[in-house]
Structure formats: structure tokens, C-alpha cells
Design a binder for these strands. Sequence first.
DNA 1: TTGTAAGCGTTATCAG
DNA 2: CTGATAACGCTTACAA
Lengths: 357, 357
Amino acid sequence: VPTIKDVAREAGVSVATVSRVFNQSTQVREAVAEHVRAVAGRLDYWPNGAARSLITNRTHAIGVVLPDLYGEFFSEVIRGIDLATRRERFQVLLSSSHADTEALVGAVRAMRGRVDGLIAMTPDAESTLAIREFARNFSVVLLDPGVMVRECSTISVANFEGARDMVRHLAGLGHRSIATIRGPVGNIDAEERLRGYRAGLLELGLPSSPSLEIQGDFTEASGYHSAAEILRLEPRPTAVFAGNDYMAIGLMSALHDGGIRLPEDVAVAGFDDIAISQYLSPALTTVRVDAYELGELAVHQLLPLTRALKPIAPHHEVLPTTLVVRESCGSSHPHPVDMRSRRRRSQVFSAPPEAAT
Amino acid sequence: VPTIKDVAREAGVSVATVSRVFNQSTQVREAVAEHVRAVAGRLDYWPNGAARSLITNRTHAIGVVLPDLYGEFFSEVIRGIDLATRRERFQVLLSSSHADTEALVGAVRAMRGRVDGLIAMTPDAESTLAIREFARNFSVVLLDPGVMVRECSTISVANFEGARDMVRHLAGLGHRSIATIRGPVGNIDAEERLRGYRAGLLELGLPSSPSLEIQGDFTEASGYHSAAEILRLEPRPTAVFAGNDYMAIGLMSALHDGGIRLPEDVAVAGFDDIAISQYLSPALTTVRVDAYELGELAVHQLLPLTRALKPIAPHHEVLPTTLVVRESCGSSHPHPVDMRSRRRRSQVFSAPPEAAT
DNA sequence: TTGTAAGCGTTATCAG
DNA sequence: CTGATAACGCTTACAA
């Protein structure tokens, strides 16, 4: 692998000149620059990033720390981060699936000196606090922190509002006994969605009880297994709000296997609006979270921080959620087959987030 | 951010000693080492990776280049890579969603000096050849290269065998007119699966024709739109083999909307066995590709290469595929509701790959 | 066992 | 405009 010295020697110039050519400096005569570029191309030279960042103190890379890559949602978040990042000619150092806070902190620590900033999605409040410590020397954007964080920029998903809107929607369809399958205990998205569900029931004067809150873990399997518990409830709920689409899918599968008709016997709603939701039978009524945009927003929030010479005041943003009404709750008429439309029709009600609580 | 000098000064030792402490060198008196560790901990010091890799010529990171992160399959590949990588205390530099060969080459070039090796999944043969060039100075593992590559290690998916096995299975169920929805032209997985489909028809003496090969692009939408074309065919196929699960899901959705019964009127099969396949109604008969293992294998293939002092002979591996028979082709009886089982039952027939062609 | 000092590949600061 | 040279933070002979 050739170094800048090889190019300099071969081109008959100093290393400083070669460096200038590769840094868009206009201080070089065009003829010389052209020659240097030719030699570099012939030698297949490219500046060594590590050496460069050692002196400039800029790595042109950002770190991304996620709780777990499982499923389409995170996949979309990463996609959003990845594309936005490359558009700005930055690189992504990825680290995910952290079992505990300690592993997560270790991963972030190991990134020091290799990244200019960090996008972190913490699974629980403890991790959030740990990451926050890094924000002193580091540009950090927290996704969905759950707790109030002043030290660094944050982007939150309007989980609470989305869940509450869904309950309102179900109530509007006449449902008075609405169960939920909640996500993992401690998980921030899960907790907020549960809070929104409860708030919705409360404001509408609908019955609320622990027995209506089935414990799930965001997997299809847990949704599938919830069915038994739900069907045992007296009176049987007429609607179930699942904490995410995967659990909704598992539940629908189990209900179908049990010979229960959707949405006539039981209505099922999800959260996230993953790509396949609209292709289920019945198509899933859910709350859309634009995971791609979440990733993109994080990058657009982070990069200015890394470029700034002076610390910038942290910025807090909320990604709105959108109620997407399809068939699984029985409100919309089944669609006619329309092979020409690119996307199947859905009724979409945009729900701007309210002022953060 | 403290440097090694700060620690050395604060601890009253030389930088060499601090360095030795952080490199597990036994050449340091335990009392001194303990003291240095304490000071480093207090200052929150951690070695700068860039500086370290500049001198050692090892970055402790690998690059990952993928065609596009879209969907659950790639998400699982990355997960496999990520976990296996961290287990070995390596980091992952990720870059995906490359529109063309040029963008891909640029991404790889920019990784030079920042990674010890590369895992690349190329979308087409042109990109494969471009990446191959890097293998001279770089440890490279190619995923599913499609073309024969001697220069670097490869891991291929048994796409051909899997597709052919599926055709055999469908034929065994009595289907004699089997259509397919193929993936994007030029895409290696798509081409191989199509080849397997054709080979299956040929060996069984079943009718094969271009009109039975509907063009798709691996998205649910394309599967949905294929329905119209398939239903127009004379005679109407009794089975459709979709090039991946997403297209199968789109097709199933369209057929359902059109009032066509599955599997009685038309059988549908997929490829990949993404997590939700078993929760569809009817549960999808498909070909399993263990994406997680694919990523894991790649890491286990790559790391020894990066550690080796002398170049190691490239190694070629094939990831087998497995026929997973569920309900969408009508062969298995609908499952009774069994809420206790963790996974829903499927009949699984393992199909070891044949000698590489 | 510890310290001194060279050097990894680059950019920044000066002179020229 | 161009070139010499000192950093950047670290590891590793070599010396003590």
C-alpha cells in the first residue's frame, strides 16, 4: 500500500504538495496538481484515514450504538443513518445488540478517537444515563431517551400520543373492552406506548385493569402466545392493541388458527407500520413510525454538532406518529383489487405530537 | 480528552510504561500497573485507536459493504456479523445501499487504513470483479459472489439447490404448471434461484416458458402486482414460486384480495424464511436461508485472514438451504392451535448442497 | 523492570 | 506556489 511519500517521490514533489492536492487546496498550480493526481491514480494511492485523523482530530465517521438490530424497524433506522451519513461523506461505525449497560459503555469507549460523534439508542434509562456521561467530550444524539436529558440532543418518537390516538380510534369504532400486549418491561418505547394506552382508556372512561395488559416482548412468538391469555379474559375484549406490529402479527396468526374471525370477532391493532403490515390479511391497522426518517434526522442533528467549533446548545425533537387505518379493526371497507396502484390504499390521519410532557 | 502523556505524568511513570499496562505486557511490576490503571481510570483515559493503528498497522475493525440494507434478510446478516465481530473485540465499519459499482468502490477505498479486512456482498458480477481487485492488499470475504472467484474467500448460498428443491416439492404435490416471480435482473441471488427453478422444471419434464417467469424486484409491491399477470396466464398456474418471501407475501395479499383461495386455488412458495413467514395465513412454505449464520460465517472466515502473517489460501464455503413446508402449498395439514410451543411446527427437510457447479 | 527515542502517515506552520 | 519540519498519540526496539 503506497503512502504519501511514495507519491511525492514518484511525482518529484514534496509530501506537502501531495497533501495539498488531496485537500482541495487551491494553493497548487493546476499542472502540478494534475500530475500528482495522475501518479496517485497509477499507484492506487489513497490517504490513510487513521493518520489523517490523528493530526486533524476529525475522523469523518460517526458511531452508532443500538440496543439490538432485530427486525425491520431497526433495519430501517440504520438505513436512514447510513444513507444520510454517506451523503455527507461520513462513515458509520456500528455496534449493536448490547446485553447490558456495561457492554454498551465499553462499546462507546472503544469508539473514542475513531468517531466524531455518536448516535445512541438506549434500551433503558440506566443506559441512557451512562451514555449521557460521554456527551461532555463527545457530540451525542440520543434516540428515544425516555428520561429527560439536558446534556445532549435528543430525538423522541411520539409513542405516547400514537398509542393514545389508537385507543381513541378503537373507541370510536365502538370498542369498549380494549386489551393490550405490552413490550418488555424497562423498554422505553414499550413503557410509553403503555402509558398512552392507559391515558386513552382513562380519558374515555373505558375499563382499565392489569389483566387487560398482557406481557409480551416485541416478538411474533410472544404475540402468538398472548392469544390464549386474551381469549380467557371475561368479558372477552373486542379489540387488542399490540405494542408493535410483530406482536400483532403473531396474535393475528394465533387467532386465525383458533378460528376467530378478524376483525368481526376481535379487532387487532399494531404499532410501527413495518412494510408488510399493509399486505397482511386483513391489512393491519397500526401507528406509523418513520424509522428511516428517525435515522436520517439523527444524522442531520449530529453532523452540525461535530463540525461546530464551539459547543452548540442541545436540540430536542419529536418524531410524530401517524394513525394508519386499514382493515384489521374493521373500520374501512375491504379494498377492491387495484393492481395498478403502487401502494395499497390506506386511510391516513396525521397526528402531530403535542407539547412534550 | 486525556492522552497517554497525561496519564504518564499524573502517575509519575513514562509513557512506555503506561502503554505496556494497556497492552497486557507482563513486563510491568504489578504494583506499578495497578497504580497506572487507577490513574487512567480516574482520568477516564482510553487509548486513541487511530494513533494505535497507525503504528501497529492493525485497526481491530472490519469493513462491511452491502448492496442495500432493505428488509429483514440483510438485517439478520448484519446482526450475525455484528455479534460475531464483537465477540472477537473487533469493530464494524458499515457501508451499504450502493447504487452502482463506482459508489461501492469508493466506499471500500475510503475504508483503507481504517479496517483490517472486508466483508462484501456485491449485488452483481461487475461489482464482484471490482471488489476482487482489493483482495490483493486486503483480506476480503465475498458473500454470494455469483461468479467464480479464486482471489479471495467466498461464502455462497445454495440458491440453485434450494429453488430446485422447491420445484421438486411442488411437483411432488401434483403441480404441473408452476410459475415464478423472479428477482431483479443482474441480481445474483435472483439469477441463481431462477436457474434452479428452470432446472427443476426441466428434470421433471414440466412446461417451462418465459411467460411463466414474471419479473419482480424482491419487494412486496412487485409481488402484489404480479398477481394480475399470473391470473391472466392460460392455463392458469396452480403454483407460484416467488423469488423471496417479500414477493410471496405481496402475491398472497393480492390473491386474497381477489378472492382466490390459498392453497386450494393457487399454491404460493417463497424463499429466505424471514421470521414472519410462519405467522402468515396460510403459513408460508419457503426455503430457509440462515442469514444470521451467513454473517457469522463471514466473520469467522475473515478474522483468521486478518491475523495471519502470511497470506492464507482462499477458502470457499456454501451455506446450505432448507426446504420448510408449511401450509401455503397445501401439503401439510393446518396446525391445531398449540399455544405452548415456542415456534409453530413446520416440517423441515434439510437439503445439503451438492458439489459446487 | 523501566525509560528514551524513533517512527507510523498525515497535516499545519512556517520559510522561502 | 512550494518545501522542510514539527507535531498528532501511540508502540516498540534499545538502553539503562
